[in-house]
């Protein structure tokens, strides 16, 4: 390593030599150590990924944090430093509070239902022997639908004039008015979001189930007669790593990735419809042109999600048994 060509072409690279020292430090496992002739080569390989992360995550994050301390002129004629005013405005606003409450409710419902139904379907599909592939394909195929399209299909189902689900509700005596009635809209949002997420959970739960060793299941078959007991005592604990991963992913999904669905459902609708925090960030920033306020909200959201994820890892993961 002492006489690499790079040293001759770039003789006074202090940073580089430090990098090299770090890079060529002995790793405890020699089998895992990959040798590159030039210290820059690994960075070259990392570059595309790093570029994506920096351009699409770190840079906007920094931008958001900075602009959250300013009030921007709606027409772009400069900005004024206001300190934490944007934050206090957001946190004391009753509208923000009610959106936050709805977001929490929405998250719990979407995560709970899509995990629950996904698991139920996976357990049932795992038992199907004849035509198993067809079942699985049909159940998984929804995942290939893009979220805005899912939103559109959902809207057709919930349409006040032609929607079959509206007809179904009418049959039970309820006048379903999605886009007008707050809770009707919430119901539609949750239904569509859950429907879109079930296949994802289904795939993971199914593969999780199939990785439970057959002999362990058979041992349980001899030890416990009740299928429910076997499921609770043996299958579920062995699924815990999968379930934990899906919990983290599903909460993130409910918080962020449901944006297109919400957009399709509530866009251009009159009345006071339920929205999540992410959608409010977008509304305030791009519809309301309040860049500062919206930035503050997105920073708050970022902190909340980070905290939530840390909490999950600290308190839930301890109970997870990795095989």
């Amino acid at each position: 390593m002492t006489d690499s060509p790079l040293r001759t072409t770039l003789p006074n690279g202090a940073l580089l030599s430090r990098l090299r020292a770090w890079y060529s430090a002995d790793t405890p496992n020699p089998a895992k150590r990959v040798q590159f002739d030039r210290p820059l080569t690994p960075w070259l390989f990392l570059l595309p990924q790093l570029a994506v992360v920096v351009i699409f995550f770190y840079w906007p994050s920094v931008q958001a944090v900075t602009s959250s301390f300013y009030i921007e002129d709606p027409f772009g004629f400069g900005s004024t430093f206001v300190g934490t005013e944007n934050y206090t405005d957001a946190l004391t606003s009753s509208q923000y509070a009610s959106t936050a409450m709805f977001t929490a409710f929405f998250c719990v419902m979407v995560t709970g239902l899509s995990l629950g139904i996904g698991l139920l379907l996976a357990v049932k599909a795992d038992k199907v022997i004849r035509g198993a592939a067809t079942y699985k394909t049909l159940l998984i195929s929804v995942y290939a639908i893009a979220p805005p399209v899912a939103g559109l299909i959902g809207m057709m189902f919930f349409d006040m004039h032609i929607g079959p689900l509206t007809d179904l509700a009418a049959f039970f005596g309820h006048d379903l008015r999605v886009g007008i009635n707050y809770w009707d809209t919430a119901f539609a949002l949750i239904t569509i979001s859950v429907w879109k997420q079930i296949p994802y959970n289904f795939i993971f739960f199914l593969s999780g189930l199939q990785s439970v060793p057959v002999s362990v299941r058979e041992a349980a078959l001899i030890d416990a007669q009740s299928g429910w007991r076997r499921f609770c005592d043996v299958t579920l604990p062995l699924l815990a790593p999968t379930a934990f991963f899906l919990l983290v992913i599903n909460i993130t999904y409910a918080m962020f990735d449901t944006f297109p669905i919400i957009d399709v459902v509530v866009k251009d609708k009159p009345a006071n419809n339920p929205i999540t925090l992410v959608y409010k960030v977008y509304l305030d920033g791009f519809k309301g042109n309040d860049i500062g306020g919206s930035s503050a909200q997105s920073v708050i959201l970022m902190v909340v999600v980070a905290a939530l994820t840390v909490l999950q890892f600290r308190f839930l993961e301890r109970r997870v048994h990795y095989g």
Binding site: P213, S215, V216, A219, D233, L238, G323
Partner: peptide, 14 residues
């Protein structure tokens, strides 16, 4: 009313 011992032990790992 039987008990079985499996080749790969089939213990409950958790």
């Amino acid at each position: 009313d039987i008990a079985m011992v499996f080749q790969n032990y089939a213990l409950y790992p958790h």
